[in-house]
């Protein structure tokens, strides 16, 4: 069973990584095996949310943003699975704050009660745009409610990682007390079912830095990490580390979907390429 950490303990662990000269690496896990492997790799923080099971079932992360399942129930179910196989790494859970049927403070209590060490705003309405986003915000259950979610967690001394999609959102989340801000530059590209039209890497780095500066101007102690778009592998993440002031990287597709796609197809190809001396048996009657 995963050790449950207080907010102070999670922050101390993250700062210890940085003090040791290493960037933060944070990842989503949609199945227990990925959580175990990520912990072995030394991941700093694991996240559990509803897009994970879709990803690991071979679908796009976007499926988690359509109406084919109760995201908060999926996260709780997956949470039991992941918390059961992780040992020391802090595990945080996603709350979809636009849930029309659940009381958010009770949901926070329920998730901390089951062993999560913090909360993140997933699924987030920040992923929607245009008129649709405006309609969601008009119901009062949109992004501002996610900012409230972070504020409520901070009041309870619960650790939060908040996804932001613009400098204004990054600033609002910092003001609400988010401990880490994931500067989100869109769905992750790459692989078989990744986004096809990610932002180019220069623009993504610039956008990340703008969000970082907005968040830091509000609260200098906030930790900002890069996420999404073209940041899909260590090479592209090296660029964002070199050209912006982020202190880490947050990956979901890049930590679980892409490595599994590559590793499984690769090893099958290797087995298939082996020479063998057996002969084809005759066709039976």
């Amino acid at each position: 069973m995963a050790r449950q950490h207080t907010r102070t303990q999670v922050l101390a662990r993250l700062r210890a990584t940085l003090e040791a000269g290493r960037p933060l690496v944070i990842g989503g896990a949609g199945i227990g095996l990925v959580a175990k492997a990520a912990e072995h790799g030394g991941i700093d923080l694991l996240m559990v949310y509803n897009t994970g099971p879709f990803r690991m079932a071979g679908h796009g992360s976007l499926a988690g943003y359509l109406a084919y399942g109760d995201s908060n129930a999926m996260t709780i179910e997956l949470g039991h699975e992941i918390l059961g196989v992780v040992e020391e790494t802090p595990v945080i859970g996603g709350i979809g704050a636009a849930d029309p049927f659940r009381d958010i403070p009770r949901l926070i209590d329920q998730m901390i009660g089951m062993g999560f060490s913090g909360i993140t705003n997933v699924p987030t309405t920040g992923l929607y745009q245009g008129d649709f986003r405006a309609h969601i915000d008009a119901t009062n259950l949109g992004y501002p409610r996610e900012v409230d979610l972070v504020r409520m967690c901070r009041e309870r001394d619960v650790f939060t990682l908040a996804y932001a999609f613009s400098p204004d959102e990054a600033r609002a989340m910092a003001a609400a007390g988010a401990d880490v801000i994931g500067a989100h530059v869109g769905l992750t590209s790459g692989g078989w079912i990744g986004a096809q039209k990610a932002m180019d890497i220069e623009a993504a780095c610039a956008s990340t830095q703008e969000m970082l500066e907005a968040a830091r101007s509000e609260r200098p102690d906030v930790l900002v990490v890069a996420h999404g778009g073209p940041f899909e592998d260590p090479e592209s993440v090296r660029r964002v580390f070199e050209t912006t002031d982020v202190v880490g990287y947050l990956g979901a597709s890049s930590i679980e979907r892409l490595p599994v796609e590559r590793a499984v197809s690769g090893v099958v190809r290797e087995f298939s390429a082996l020479p063998f001396r057996g002969v084809i048996p005759p066709i039976g009657r």
Binding site: Y65, L66, A67, Y68, D70, G96, P100, P123, F132, I136
Partner: peptide, 24 residues
């Protein structure tokens, strides 16, 4: 369809397009 169910529940129908229910 799903949004009609939300109407009857008194919930804004736009929320029926979010991941809090299984529309099918």
């Amino acid at each position: 369809y799903g949004t009609a169910v939300y109407r009857i529940l008194g919930v804004p129908t736009v929320l029926a397009f979010l991941p809090y229910d299984d529309a099918n």
